[in-house]
Amino acid sequence: MSAPKTEWPLWEVFVRSRQGLSHKHVGSLHAADATMAISNARDVYTRRQEGTSIWVVKAEDITASTPSDKDVLFDPANDKVYRHPTFYDLPDEVKNM
């Protein structure tokens, strides 16, 4: 599908909902530049005090893993149960561990 010249670039929007939390992806929007992207993101994604800080990133600048790599990337962690504390059986007498 063609991308006509008239369309402003696509930006992904991340919002920090309150101090102490990390920014979270909330959606995307079109804007001519970063300044406009921030101001549009304010209007589109924070009309009800949903945020204290906004990040915008051009969608084309994001590198993502591909779904077909999912097994290669994430399966190897499946058989390493010893990374979890519940793997270790300890006597009940041991406290605070």
Binding site: M1, L10, D43
Partner: peptide
């Protein structure tokens, strides 16, 4: 505020549709 919300809803939804490979235009 309500009409502004409708605009916002339209924009969330256009963005969701764009993830499927169709452009806004």
């Amino acid at each position: 505020a309500k009409v502004q919300d409708e605009a916002g809803h339209g924009l969330y939804l256009y963005s969701a549709a764009e993830t499927l490979g169709i452009t806004r235009d």
